[in-house]
Amino acid sequence: MDFFNIFIKAAFIENLVLAYFLGMCSYLAVSKTVKTAFGLGLAVIFVLAITMPINWIISNKILSENGILGIDLTFLRFILFIAVIASMVQLVEMIIEKVSPSLYNSLGIFLPLITVNCAILGGSLFMVARDYNFSDSVAFGLGGGFGWFLAIIAIAAIREKIRYSDVPPALRGLGMAFILTGLMGIAFMSLMGIDPAALGK
């Protein structure tokens, strides 16, 4: 499968939030305004795109039987993946703080949150389960991140508007967010008919 193919598939057809419910916690908690959602979305794209290739290398070159060590160490996968993600998030945070303080100020609080964002670890685990190769995993990281970004921006925009609607009190806020996400999930399902392989022809 080629790069573009996997990117489209990960971003739209198999959207991490709307098809797999990954990263729901921060998706629901940080989607009250578009501005904050935008910051978190960018940070997720960033971290997914970085951790995915690194985890691919770890999983295929170090932990697998055909790797450098020559022993089957796959039982260490969870611990190593989460350690990579945690340290990458830390690293990204420090780099952004040095390079661009203004970006750091807008992303600042969201970066640590990303360590426990299921979309990141889930992406890495899907990559292993689906036997992607290196370039596939880069595409999947970028596409998955972009899909997550789209989803959180969309729900944040809807939630900003719905504040002026007359929702039953008990359904206000969280309950409505769940139902909206369900509706968006159905809307995204209509993209399932797209065949990325046919687009290039």
């Binding site: 709307l18 769940f178 139902i179 996400t181 369900g182 999930g185 399902m189």
Partner: peptide, 9 residues
């Protein structure tokens, strides 16, 4: 998957 969201809502 959407059904789970509706039910929880």
């Amino acid at each position: 998957p959407a059904a789970a969201m509706f039910i929880i809502g």
